[in-house]
Structures are given as C-alpha cells and as structure tokens.
Amino acid sequence: MDINRIQQFGDKLYEAFVARSTIAPLTEQVPDITLEEAYAIQLRYIERRLQAGETIVGKKIGVTSKAVQQFLGVYQPDFGQLTSNMVFANGADIDLGGLIQPKAEAELAFVLKEDLNGPGITAMDVIRATDYVVPCFEIVDSRITDWKIKIQDTVADNASCGVYVLGDERGDPRKLDLTLAGMVLEKNGELYSTGVGAAVQGSPVNAVAWLANTLGTLGIPFKAGEVILSGSQSQLVPVKDGDELVCTIGGLGSCRVSFSGRSAV
C-alpha cells in the first residue's frame, strides 16, 4: 500500500471519529492489507488527533485473551495509543453521545515511573518500572461498521480504543498477585461476570512486557508517567443510558462508571 493510501485511511478513520460515524472494514476495501500497514494507518489517525490538540498519555493493549485471539485468528496482542481527551475520573458519568458503538471492559491499568525501552524487557523490568496499578474500565468503540473487524481493522482503528476510566485505589505491583487476583464485574448492582489477571497473557505483567518490546522494535517511545491499559479481564459489556458498572480487583480496589445519553449507533 502506498503512503498516500495509508494517509487516506488514517484520515477517514479520524473523520469517522470526529463525526461519530463508521466506515466499511478496511479488510473489505483492501483484502491483502498487512498488519504493518494497519499500524501505519493507526499512526496517521493518531497524528490527526495530536494535530487537533491532544497529547499522548499512554497505551492500550488489546487482543490479550485466548477467546479473542481465537476469534480474530491472531496469537499475539495488539496496541493502540491513549490520548488526553480519552480519560475520565473514577465514578464519571459518560455521555454516550460522544461515542459510536461502545462496549465496556474491566482491566488493570499500569502507570510507569521509569521509561521501558524494549526489546529485551522482561516481566521483572515491568514490575520494577511500575509506579502503581489501578483497576479501570476501558470503553472500547469502533469506527468500523458493526464491529466487523479483522485484526488489521482494529489495529488501524487504534485498537478500537474509545475512552477509559481509572479507579482511585492504587496498588504496588510488588505487593499484589496480579496473576491470580480475581476480578468481579457488576452491572446495575448485579453480578455480570468474573475474571482473573491470568486471562491477560497469563498475567497482565506479561502483556506490558510484550508491549515494551513491540514498541521498542517499532521505535515508539514508552515513557515514565504513561498509563497502560493491560487488556480485558472480562467479557465485553454492552452499555446504554442509565447503566452503572463497578469492577473490583481482589486485593486492589474498585472502579466505577455510569452512562447516559445515546451512542451514535
């Protein structure tokens, strides 16, 4: 794919994001699109958001569970960039009018106190370089019509990132069992699903190490202060006006979010 085509697709995704609309899957428009091209499109889409005044505040890791990997037929995670307009405080009420076709996921977020320069990063480096971890919700969203995504579509679309909410209770990864910590997700006061850290690449720490090594190879900086959403520990939760979600990670704490209004689709 030539550079103009990549730029065009990045622009289309950005325009869909701004207009709260969707575009046909890129994999239908360009059946032989590669993963590399998809990441190049993502960079363009993010470049447009930065030009509009946002800044990079972190990364998200996606496709971390076996179920999602089998569904997409890929056996490694993907990543997207977190930008400054995406973040919401714990307990926020999110206006669905700003989103297209959102779904929620409960995750563990890492905040770095040191740069992580891959390749060669291990799980031990991740624990050492982590300032703290917090429970969080990622509200994924797709600029691709009806979520009809293959791996190249979601990668180009910034790993289907929408917005995210960080909990207030910070934990020290040296004092927690992030692999076996249970996660309980409640929707409107009722148990919705449960999970465990191990659902994410065997441990969320492994996912962050993968990210550091992947970013290092691509020459993308991974800096102290960045937030990393490490991958979903729950099923995707559909959300609508009036819904409230709480996720609690064992030994750590909770994150809470509610929703109002109507999304575009």
């Binding site: 249970g182 309980v184 449960t194 659902a199 990670i249 030994g251």
Partner: peptide, 27 residues
C-alpha cells in the same frame, strides 16, 4: 480474605482451561 474477589485459575497439563473469581458462587 475477600472471598468474593478471590481469583482461581485451573490448569490441565500446563494449560489454563478455566478461571474466575469466587463471586461466581452465589455472589
């Protein structure tokens, strides 16, 4: 302990086959 959020992973022959938190048991 917080028995509600207690996580468990079941491995068979070295592979994770099931996982969840104890809230699955009647909350």
């Amino acid at each position: 302990l917080d028995l509600r959020t207690l996580g468990v992973v079941l491995e068979k022959n070295g592979e994770i086959v099931e996982m969840g938190a104890a809230a699955e048991v009647m909350g």
